[in-house]
Write a protein that binds this DNA or RNA. Structure first.
Length: 219
DNA sequence: AACTCGGGGCT
DNA sequence: AGCCCAGAGTT
């Protein structure tokens, strides 16, 4: 089951067009956002609604403006700071470990992707975000949202875990390549959040519903 | 491959 | 009352 370039281009074009009218705006997407803010925002966004983090983010950044300040916080302090957004014990410990690691490295990440991905809290998704925003590579923000859109439109994944499914990984990478990678990534995620939702997707008003595998299977 | 972490928001 | 949310680490 191969996917043609034509399908890919149509997908990209329609979504970018949708995004220009309906894209969301968040502080971590601003030009002025620091590399630190971009990584931290991805940590906060894990399994947590972006709108929730939009309200929480400014407070957190005021409290911990850089890796240096974050590195001075204790593990318990970080956990307590994260309590309002959930997953606070695990996420607090892991963020603490990452902060300590970057303290040692003076705020510098390793060069190789494989080394970055070995750092605490830097999993498959955040490492992709690191490549996209900091190394300026065209890597996909392949989370549950992007995975859902891809699977509905192009077809189901093979493995249960997004991280290890080469079909999803390869296709996601292809979808965000050859154009403005920031925009297409954000377009897919915003589209997933407001149109191609997990529950109650807005298929009737979807600009991609003509060639979508999902809608053609509806009763 | 399956499980756990978690408060908040929406239905 | 139930479901979902810009995942990662462990078993």
């Amino acid at each position: 089951m191969t996917i043609s370039d034509k399908q890919v281009v149509e997908f990209q074009t329609k979504l970018l067009s949708w995004y220009k009218e309906n894209g969301r705006h968040f502080p971590w997407r601003n030009k002025s956002a620091t590399n630190y803010q971009k990584i931290v925002s991805e940590v906060l966004l894990q399994r947590t609604k972006a709108v929730t983090i939009a309200k929480f983010f400014p407070k957190f950044i005021r409290k911990y403006p850089s890796w240096k300040q974050l590195g001075n916080a204790t593990e318990e302090e970080l956990q307590e700071s994260l309590r309002p957004i959930g997953l606070y014990k695990q996420r607090g410990s892991r963020l603490f470990k990452l902060a300590q690691e970057l303290k040692k490295r003076k705020g510098r990440f390793p060069k190789e992707r494989s080394e970055v991905e070995e750092l605490p809290m830097m999993g498959q998704y955040i490492t992709n975000a690191y490549e996209l925003f900091i190394l300026k590579k065209s890597s996909p923000l392949l989370d549950v949202n992007m995975a859902r859109v891809i699977e509905r439109y192009f077809g189901q994944r093979k493995l249960s875990d997004i991280r290890y499914d080469p079909y999803l990984q390869d296709l996601a990478h292809k979808l965000v390549t050859s154009i403005n990678s920031y925009e297409i990534n954000w377009a897919i995620i915003d589209f997933a959040a407001s149109i191609c939702k997990a529950r109650d997707p807005k298929c009737p008003m979807c600009s991609l519903n003509k060639n979508c595998k999902f809608i053609t299977q509806l009763p």
